[in-house]
Amino acid sequence: MIDQSVADVMMESVRTVTAETTASDVARLFADHDIGSAVVVDPGSGELLGIVTESDVMHQVAIDADVATVAVGSFMSEHLVTIDSSESIHEAAAMMKEHSIRRLPVVDDGALVGILTTTNLTHYLPRLRNAVLRTRGELVGQ
């Protein structure tokens, strides 16, 4: 089986916010960039503090929080699961399943270098399948 690394599939462009960013500002960021999450970082050290998702923001709306003032640090997911860019996509998929997450920040030496989502994996699977078939000689005409 051909095994690709996370670096081959991840998106290098990952948006970050600070814990002080308001829910309304992060919602605007999501809309402006057509994304569903942002990694929360400490602005001084660059330390990864957590992740905030569209679902997190929607929950704030549902409980009638003042989204103009509530900071993402008060409702972000603090237990941040990350993966090294050199790991296999199979390991990444297993981690996502084990932790029931759809977004996996990618790090190298503790520094954020990208993000891997279930959408990335879904779009990559047909290419991986074709590569496997090519190595087996089962894909003709391509």
Rank of each mutant, 00 (worst) to 15 (best):
I2W: 08
D3P: 08
Q4T: 13
Q4Y: 15
Q4G: 10
V6D: 06
D8V: 05
V9T: 08
M10H: 02
M10K: 10
M10I: 05
M11K: 14
S13L: 12
R15C: 11
R15F: 15
T16W: 00
V17Y: 03
A19C: 03
E20G: 09
T22I: 02
T22K: 07
T22L: 02
T22D: 08
S24A: 12
S24D: 11
V26G: 01
V26Q: 04
V26R: 07
R28L: 13
R28H: 12
L29T: 14
F30E: 12
F30R: 11
F30H: 09
A31G: 09
D32Q: 15
D32S: 14
D32G: 11
H33Y: 10
D34R: 15
D34N: 14
D34A: 15
D34M: 07
I35K: 05
G36F: 01
G36R: 07
S37V: 00
A38S: 01
V39G: 01
V41F: 00
D42G: 01
D42Q: 02
S45F: 04
G46I: 08
G46Q: 09
G46D: 10
E47C: 04
L48P: 06
L49Y: 03
V52F: 01
T53E: 00
E54L: 00
E54Q: 10
S55K: 13
S55F: 11
V57H: 09
V57N: 10
M58I: 13
M58Y: 08
Q60W: 01
Q60A: 15
V61L: 10
V61G: 00
I63E: 14
I63G: 00
I63A: 05
D64A: 12
D66T: 06
D66Y: 03
V67R: 06
V67K: 08
V67F: 07
V67N: 09
V70Y: 07
G73V: 04
G73T: 06
G73M: 03
S74E: 15
S74C: 08
F75L: 15
S77W: 07
E78I: 08
L80G: 08
L80D: 09
T82N: 04
T82P: 08
I83T: 13
I83C: 04
D84I: 02
S85N: 12
S85V: 11
S88Q: 02
I89Y: 04
H90P: 00
H90N: 10
A92M: 06
A93K: 11
A93D: 11
A94V: 13
M96C: 08
M96A: 06
K97S: 12
K97I: 09
E98I: 00
E98A: 11
H99P: 03
H99C: 03
S100K: 15
S100D: 15
I101D: 02
V106H: 03
V107W: 01
D108Q: 13
D108C: 05
D108H: 11
G110P: 05
A111Y: 12
A111N: 13
L112W: 04
L112H: 06
V113A: 02
I115V: 13
T117M: 03
T117P: 05
N120P: 07
L121S: 09
L121D: 10
L121K: 11
T122H: 05
T122M: 12
H123D: 12
Y124C: 05
P126T: 05
P126I: 04
L128W: 08
R129C: 07
R129N: 10
R129E: 12
N130P: 05
N130M: 14
L133A: 10
R134T: 14
T135H: 12
T135V: 09
R136I: 06
E138Q: 13
E138C: 04
L139N: 09
V140R: 14
